[in-house]
């Protein structure tokens, strides 16, 4: 095309040349800087959160009114046993010494000893963690697998000028479903599929079929919330100028929806979805207790009831770290999907 050789821009007397306006943005060093700043800021925030978390879990045992060891061993325990246990936990040292000691043992992976079983807490956690992780991960995957297609479909059906009724029905039913707490759904599922129909196992994780009910109970609520978010975001994105541009390119409609609109809708959905994922970490606690799942969730409840504080302390810490990791992974994924999000956060 001869337009390539036509001189252009000759009529801009004092203005910058055509290469001028954005030239510095092309410089690699400038291009790299947001990444570095993002990483440093993220890492800083992660470390501070981690410190707060560790301190909170340390403080927990000291916030308990009365003597935690006496509480754990019961009023009838002999005084010398209580004293010995207190000494072995270091509870008689000055608080800062205890804090330093706590940090030091944490850094070596020593989480203390269970008051109940006398086993190293780290071993118990290590034994129980995989079951919880697997449950959470499967639940999350199922939630996404339900929510994204459903939310996308609902979004396309209710885009501007379409489907008022569909929208009302979808929104209402997603609120209703999201309200059903995972443990209630779990009990209901146990009743229907375990007690009534007898199709599926209702406890433990020995067989593959034992995964079905717990994973479903965990996933349905978050799936409803996520689907709703995906729909709202998609409807908004479908109105964006760049979607009009994509339509102006006359791409096939599904390419406009899935290729141009959905990724952007998911980017915003992910911001809220991250919180959701965090709450699923907590959701496993209840679900595990419904289904006698041999994970951290059933352990933390039994150890709270047994006042086995070192174990509780460690599990709280593990859950907390889990949430932190999840939230940070979400942020990083977000930055990969939408480079602007790195710059946006102040």
């Amino acid at each position: 095309m001869s337009a390539t050789t036509t001189p252009i821009g000759h009529a801009a007397p004092a203005g910058p040349t055509s290469a001028g306006p954005g030239a510095d943005a092309a410089h690699p060093r400038v291009w790299e800087r947001p990444w570095a700043r993002f990483a440093v800021r993220r890492l800083g925030r992660l470390l501070v959160s981690l410190w707060v978390l560790v301190t909170a879990s340390f403080a927990m045992i000291h916030l308990i009114p009365g003597d935690p060891v006496r509480g754990a061993l019961g009023p009838t325990a002999p005084a010398d046993l209580v004293a010995a246990r207190r000494a072995s936990l270091g509870l008689d040292d000055p608080i800062l010494v205890q804090y330093a000691h706590y940090l030091r043992s944490l850094s070596t992976g020593d989480l203390g000893t269970s008051l109940g079983s006398q086993l190293p807490v780290a071993d118990i956690v290590g034994q129980r963690l995989p079951a919880t992780l697997l449950l959470g991960l499967l639940g999350f995957l199922l939630a996404v697998a339900i929510a994204v297609p459903l939310g996308t479909l609902a979004g396309v059906l209710t885009r501007r000028g379409h489907g008022r009724r569909t929208e009302l029905g979808f929104t209402t039913s997603s609120i209703v479903i999201a309200t059903v707490p995972d443990f209630l759904l779990g009990v209901g599922l146990v009743y229907v599929f375990g007690v009534h129909l007898g199709w599926l196992p209702v406890a433990g994780n020995e067989s593959a079929s034992a995964y079905v009910l717990p994973v479903v109970s965990l996933a349905v609520g978050p799936a409803a919330i996520l689907a709703r978010i995906v729909r709202v975001e998609l409807v908004e994105v479908l109105d964006a100028d760049y979607v009009r541009t994509a339509r102006a390119k006359r791409l096939a409609p599904w390419k406009v929806y899935l290729g141009h609109a959905l990724p952007n809708a998911l980017t915003s959905a992910l911001t809220i979805g991250g919180l959701l994922l965090g709450s699923m970490v907590a959701g496993t606690v209840l679900v595990e207790n419904v289904f006698a799942w041999p994970g951290l969730g059933s352990t933390i409840v039994s150890s709270i009831l047994a006042k086995d504080y070192p174990l509780v302390q460690a599990i709280v810490l593990v859950y907390g770290i889990g949430v932190l990791v999840v939230n940070n992974v979400v942020d990083v994924v977000l930055a990969l999907l939408d480079p602007r999000s790195m710059i946006r956060e102040d």
Partner: peptide, 24 residues
Amino acid sequence: AGVNVAVAFPGLLLALFFAVVFGV
């Protein structure tokens, strides 16, 4: 900043933490 960190924490975990502190 503290509030923002706490918001990102699921309520149930915080509740468990406080349940330990305040007793069952």
